[in-house]
Design a protein around this nucleic acid. Structure first.
Lengths: 351, 351
DNA sequence: ATCACTTGTGGGAGCGCTCCCACACTACCT
DNA sequence: AGGTAGTGTGGGAGCGCTCCCACAAGTGAT
């Protein structure tokens, strides 16, 4: 005890043992109180809590992580360069939902960008070191090796958009197919007959589903299939502009455009303006995401709203369950680990 | 030993001990190799490295943190709501510089928002638990208690803008005074005589220094001091607009405006437009930050460039030094821990 | 030959927790 | 009276490292 004060006081963090001594109980009992075990009498609990308060005890995370083999941290991995992250409201909205859902948890959120090869290298190291209990993966492309790495390392993970219809990882997604259908049906109801579609990156499954929804809506309305009305974009503004230019060249008679994202729609809008077309008089425009861009566009953009914050929340729920069960959901049989949330068409002046 | 394989293999991470056995050396030697100690013979080092590669050994961070009492992580703390973080290019540029400088380090970067009281609470807990080796603090207001908390916990920290001329924490800043002077001198050289200033939040020291620079430049040019030409803003677009309205009402004869940020200038621009003034013919406009906004404004905005990425790098350098020295820089005497970087005026069409 | 260093190495102790077994008690049945 | 649970508690063992002391072997001066 004598030497203890001398050493311990610099940076002086009290330990479990010291709290136990103060409260007149054993180390195990303090641990139980800290971790909310029910197997502690009320009197003992109160005594321990008092000691904790008096000493200003804060558990040592490293010791806990070592002994319990968990980190109480999860990572939100963005397989994109940071610039895209900041440019697209999708990510920040997602982060908001995730943060909200996590705020009444002890869990710590880490934001990790893995855009460059170098960053990916670091990430792989990071995951191999098991520095997080679980991973949230957003915006993954079809050929991304990250999900498989995660599976191999047996790290619980939830993906924001499944890579395919047969995704093995737990996933949360919005109803891309239904959302696209509702957009097209809306345009049809407005009397448009030459409806074009600017797609997202087609190596993203959700973008493909939007194409499917677009196609089926037209088919069900009895309109002939015309692939010249479909042009590939990449979710960026520049891509939307380029695609629109191409569409106008190929089919000057288009009277409506369904763009796979609001940012894409913004690009298309520019191209339409430059060609002298008015929105919505000459060409109606519908976007996807219902982000801030849609509200501030001139004219305000009709858009398919995805409940992105809610998706973030759902991802956390799934992930925490997986972590609690201590193994990837996929290996637990055929329970429901593919969550799909409904979309909603928000009508504005552009259509 | 018998039970070891059975248990250890699920999730099977090799330990130092196993690497040592494989390489035919002691535990200490492997540790030395892993940590790059020079006190290892070349032959031994090679043997250990081979064993590490064969076993796919990755150090256990928790064990290391516990034994060495460090975490190899630092936090970038943003005492603002996330929305401002995403809205202002300042932060993302800073993050870029920080990330770049950190990428050849073992250090992990954590991004922590502390906008709400709740988030601040969490942050305090987090810091008390010493879950990071150091902290980068950006955009701190004069009355923020965070710096003092950091000092009290003896956590190395670097602040992006000093809170006052007598800042005790290590800090990195751009030359706000000189930057402001150069902006005003530029406007004077262009023949403007009624130069107004829309300030930033005046509880931010840097904003005050910009006011000082503005004042001194006018005084040195022999112009009379006129405080009606100064209106307080808050770095936001809305604030800039409101301040400009007020200025126009008070001094309809202004022929130039120096705004404390590009975002503020964007707000001022709107107000000027609405009052029928042309930029730069009627009123010249200069911003601060030289962010993307400045380049894309119509007309493109003359702006004072701060080397934000470089500032991020400098902050990391200072912080890593502090951490290596194992105590806050302020307590180490009067060395140079206040870094000030030069600004540069970027001239565009708005002035 | 002896002493003094230097260099490379092995391994004990200990970081602060969690997990779990052991044990004392207290009930409540036979 | 003797079981048989259940409840609350203490503390040993061990998580995988780092730190540091001890020591062997080599090198050169005395």
């Amino acid at each position: 005890m004598a030497g203890h004060g001398a050493r311990g006081r610099s940076g002086g963090r009290p330990t479990l043992e010291e709290v136990a001594a103060r409260a007149g109980v054993g180390r195990g009992t303090v641990s139980r109180v800290i971790n909310g075990s029910p197997r502690v009498s009320d009197a003992t609990r109160a005594a321990v809590e008092a000691a904790v308060a008096e000493l200003g005890y804060v558990p040592n995370t490293a010791a806990r992580a070592l002994a319990a083999n968990r980190t109480d941290a999860i990572a939100l991995v963005v397989p994109e360069p940071e610039t895209r992250f900041f440019a697209e409201p999708y990510f920040s909205d997602m982060l908001k939902g995730v943060g909200a859902e996590l705020s009444d948890t002890e869990m710590q959120l880490l934001l990790i960008f893995a855009g460059s090869d170098r960053e990916r290298q670091r990430l792989a190291q990071y995951l191999a070191a098991h520095r997080v209990d679980g991973v949230l993966l957003v915006s993954v492309h079809a050929d991304d090796p990250l999900p498989d790495l995660l599976a191999q390392l047996e790290i619980p993970a939830v993906i924001s958009g499944p890579r395919s219809a047969t995704e093995t990882l737990a996933s949360v997604d919005s109803d891309n197919y239904g959302g696209a259908r509702s957009a097209v049906e809306h345009l049809l109801a407005r009397g448009r007959g030459r409806i074009a579609h600017i797609t997202g990156r087609l190596d993203v499954y959700g973008a493909q589903r939007r194409v499917d929804g677009y196609r089926d809506a037209l088919r069900d309305a009895g309109l002939p299939a015309d692939d010249r009305l479909i042009e590939a974009g990449d979710f960026t503004e520049e891509g939307g502009r380029r695609a629109m230019d191409e569409l106008l060249r190929r089919c000057p008679d288009v009277d409506a455009v369904f763009a796979a994202s609001d940012v894409t729609a913004a690009g298309a809008r520019q191209a339409l303006r430059e060609s002298g077309r008015r929105i919505p008089e000459d060409v109606a425009l519908v976007g996807y995401d219902d982000s801030a861009i849609a509200r501030h566009m001139e004219p305000p953009l009709t858009s398919v709203r995805q409940p992105i914050e809610e998706m973030g929340r759902a991802m956390i729920d799934l992930l925490l369950t997986e972590i609690a069960d201590r193994r990837p959901a996929a290996s637990r049989g055929l329970e429901r680990h593919q969550v799909v949330l409904a979309t909603e068409l928000v009508e504005r002046a552009s259509s």
